[in-house]
């Protein structure tokens, strides 16, 4: 028996909008610790990892570990029928092959039940080791989204370089080139507007902008984004989900030959 009640239902709506462009079908894993997902995009170039901890739910009942295969587009279609202020409850009975999404309006005068068939998805679960990163950039998520969007109008790939000057985003294409440098800036009114750069050593990596633009679909989830870079590893783009967990995107770099 599974029953997860999320008062801030809009979070789940945003989480689905943040993943459905990258991943079509995925397994949601439910355990005592929380509701999670790990899935690669179809080309195995990117990976998304979601964690919503059980403490973040108003009510969290998960009698035994459960994995539910869902088509994220279909799930998103159903969640879009929930109001932004609705309470969303995810329910599944043992042994059934469907999941129910229940939407309750804030004053309980409207209750909706959407039932969706589950799928069998044999997804490989990857082991992601905790790593030391050569550079970690924390910046406003809207700023990062703007940079990725602007640069993708000039080129297909972006070189992200972190030096003591700051973090530089560079691209080149048929019409020309573009360089954007963001410097560390802690003297801001609100902490979420700060750009903070922790650099152990300079690092520079090249990534496909198409994937980074998919990742920025998570911008509504958090005011800030953290970008962790290391020359031997995929970049990690993380959006914290307030009081609940996170959505992390991993992207393999392009390798110069």
């Amino acid at each position: 028996m599974l029953e997860l009640r999320l008062v801030q239902g809009s979070l789940l709506k945003k989480v689905l909008d943040a993943m459905r462009e990258l991943v079509n079908d995925a397994n949601f894993d439910c355990s005592a610790t929380g509701f999670s997902l790990q899935a690669m995009d179809s080309s195995h170039v990117a990976l998304v990892a979601l964690l919503l901890r059980s403490e973040g739910f108003e009510h969290y009942r998960c009698d035994r570990n459960l994995s539910m295969g869902m088509n994220l587009n279909n799930m998103s279609k159903m969640l879009r029928c929930a109001g932004n202020d609705d309470i969303i409850t995810i329910k599944a009975d043992d042994g059934t092959d469907s999941v129910t999404f229940m939407f309750e309006s804030p004053n309980q005068d409207k209750i909706a039940d959407f039932e969706m068939k589950l799928m069998d998805i044999d997804s490989e679960h990857l082991g992601i080791p905790d790593a030391e990163y050569q550079a970690i950039v924390r910046m406003p998520s809207s700023e990062f989204a703007r940079i990725c969007k602007d640069l993708s109008s000039i080129g297909d790939t972006v070189v992200i370089s972190v030096t003591k000057e700051g973090v530089k985003f560079s691209t080149a294409g048929d019409i020309g080139t573009a360089n954007i440098v963001c410097r560390q800036n802690k003297t801001v009114d609100k902490p979420e507007e700060a750009t903070i750069i922790e650099m152990q050593e300079p690092v520079s990596l090249t990534f496909a902008l198409r994937y980074l633009n998919s990742f920025t679909k998570a911008t509504p989830l958090s005011d800030t984004v953290t970008i962790s870079l290391s020359s031997e590893l995929p970049v990690v783009v993380e959006y914290k989900i307030a009081e609940m967990g996170y959505i992390r995107y991993y992207l393999a770099p392009k390798i110069e030959e």
Partner: peptide, 14 residues
Amino acid sequence: RSSQGRMLSYFGNS
């Protein structure tokens, strides 16, 4: 020329 890396060459199956 640059080639696109793949997840599986960084993270093995757990």
